[in-house]
Amino acid sequence: MGVLSSVGRVLFGSFFLLSAYREGREYGSDGGPAARYLEPKFNLFAKQVSTNTGMAVPHIDIKTVIATTLYLKAYGGGLFILYSSFGAFLLLVYLALITPVMYDFYNYEMGSPQFFQLLTQFSQNLALCGALIFFLGMKKSIPRRQSKRRTVKTKTT
């Protein structure tokens, strides 16, 4: 069981590590293709949040958003491979922040092909969130090893 768990963690964590590596190589001075793809979606999301909540959303530079997501994916994936709960937490934060922005199925008509494609990807990210929450729950439920102390026998006289 330990080997399967290790292989699963390596596969799961490497998905995020490789994604962060690819985006990091393309980052450049303007944030790369990820920034160009994310900027209109992020602006639309910020506009909808400010409209629905009545609170102004502060302006955040898209390069900062991309750099933050790179950090969360890279460190979270690496720490997850090393069996760290903090790595799982970083990946969970990344998914919670980026999923509603990237996969904005709610901005499309219900019958359109974009709606179904984005809804499917949104659901996949929710499944990844569920796997991370399961990992965190399982890690907390496994009892820690007790040290094997010798029991002190009382002497009878």
Rank of each mutant, 00 (worst) to 15 (best):
F105N: 10
S84D: 13
L126G: 12
G137D: 13
N107T: 15
V93F: 07
F115V: 04
A88V: 06
G78Y: 05
Y83E: 15
S5H: 12
T99D: 05
G137S: 13
T64E: 01
L92F: 06
K47Q: 08
K63P: 02
V65N: 01
Q114L: 08
I133T: 15
L91M: 02
N125G: 11
A67T: 01
V152W: 14
I81G: 12
G111C: 01
V7Y: 10
F45I: 00
K73C: 09
T69V: 03
A56R: 07
I62H: 02
V7F: 13
I66E: 11
L44C: 01
L44R: 04
R9W: 12
S112H: 13
G54W: 06
S14G: 06
L4K: 06
P113F: 06
L4S: 05
G76I: 04
G77M: 04
T151A: 04
A131S: 15
S141C: 11
F15N: 10
S6W: 02
A46M: 07
T151H: 10
S14R: 07
C129D: 08
L136I: 15
F86K: 03
N52R: 03
N52W: 04
G130C: 11
I66P: 04
R22I: 12
N52A: 09
V101Q: 09
I133P: 12
A74N: 03
A127T: 09
R149A: 10
P33S: 13
A46C: 10
F134Y: 15
R9N: 10
V3S: 14
L44S: 05
K139N: 15
A20R: 09
L17Q: 06
M55P: 00
T154Q: 10
L90I: 03
G78S: 03
G32D: 03
Q114F: 05
T157D: 11
P58K: 04
Q117S: 11
L4C: 02
Q121T: 12
T156H: 06
V7H: 07
L92G: 06
F135C: 00
K41F: 00
M102I: 09
L72P: 00
